[in-house]
């Protein structure tokens, strides 16, 4: 489904269901250089289990138009603008990595619009290695390889995907390879530059859930601890033998955590 937001065409996958105003709504926000397909193993399920679902291609990503904004806060503003365009008074925000920071920023600054926030594969501050950033800046395909290598826990490098016949490494590589020039670099840069995390955590009204991978090398669980400590009453689900591609590596566990929390 396409919606025009601030003169920009924004794509959102709806999980195969029509919008039903009587149901709560979930917005899924993907990570750097990814797109809505990152949520394929959750969005359709949630859409058939009592929720309106919009798995966005964030502005400047995937099928959406526009440019990637210069900060996480502006990216969060674009998500709220999408809600405005859809006349959504409130929604639960479920974000991954860059999308998790975006969800946090939105939940901290638009308290009455965000009913719950789920942060998957998050670290704060989200440090990005200089070598990785440099390769991304050069649009060197090595950056995609580094990302997909580090994003999968070692057991996932052997495969055994939950989707029969899916080779996770290959699929993830293809998604980021087609993200387009500068997309990864811009995404990583705004993640690294985001400094509003603790403030957002302080202002948070919505219930918060963290879903982390115990073997996540992109956003190590220990790098999320200060943020977790700053949020009262948050819940954390730690996925075992899981890297940074939580929604694919442990798709069923993520689904259960979402159903339980939302």
């Amino acid at each position: 489904m396409y919606v025009t937001v601030n003169n920009t065409k924004i794509f959102a996958a709806t999980g195969g269901r029509e919008f039903d105003p009587s149901q709560p709504t979930i917005l899924f926000l993907h990570g750097a250089a990814m797109d809505h397909t990152a949520w394929a193993l959750q969005s359709r399920y949630m859409a058939h289990h009592g929720f309106n679902v919009f798995a966005l291609d964030l502005v400047g990503h995937g099928k959406s138009g526009g440019e990637i904004p210069a900060s996480i806060d502006e990216l969060a503003d674009s998500v709220i603008a999408f809600m405005d365009a859809m006349e959504l008074k409130e929604a639960a925000l479920v974000g991954h990595s860059m999308g998790a920071l975006t969800a946090l920023s939105a939940a901290g600054r638009y308290q009455d619009r965000v009913s719950a926030v789920v942060m998957i594969g998050i670290a704060y501050p989200m440090m990005v290695g200089e070598a990785f950033l440099q390769k991304a800046r050069e649009n060197d395909p090595a950056a995609y390889q580094m990302m997909i290598d580090w994003s999968h826990a070692r057991p996932s490098h052997r495969g055994a995907a939950e989707v029969p016949g899916l080779w996770m490494i290959g699929n993830a590589l293809r998604v980021v390879e087609k993200s387009g020039k500068d997309t990864l670099y811009k995404g990583l840069s705004i993640c690294a530059g985001y400094d509003g995390g603790f403030e957002a955590a302080q202002n948070l009204k919505a219930p918060a859930l963290f879903i982390l991978g115990d073997k996540d090398m992109m956003t190590m669980p220990r790098a999320a601890q200060k943020l977790i400590a700053a949020i009262d009453g948050q819940k954390t689900v730690m996925l075992k033998d899981c890297g940074h591609m939580q929604m694919i590596e442990k798709a069923a566990d993520v689904r259960s955590a979402l159903i339980e929390f939302l």
């Binding site: 495969g159 055994a160 995907a161 029969p164 016949g165 899916l166 080779w167 290959g170 699929n171 293809r174």
Partner: peptide
């Protein structure tokens, strides 16, 4: 399927 997809460098196989 996964083994052949990995050896060929694909996203999956049937």
């Amino acid at each position: 399927e996964e083994r052949l997809a990995s050896l060929e460098g694909g996203v999956g196989a049937i």
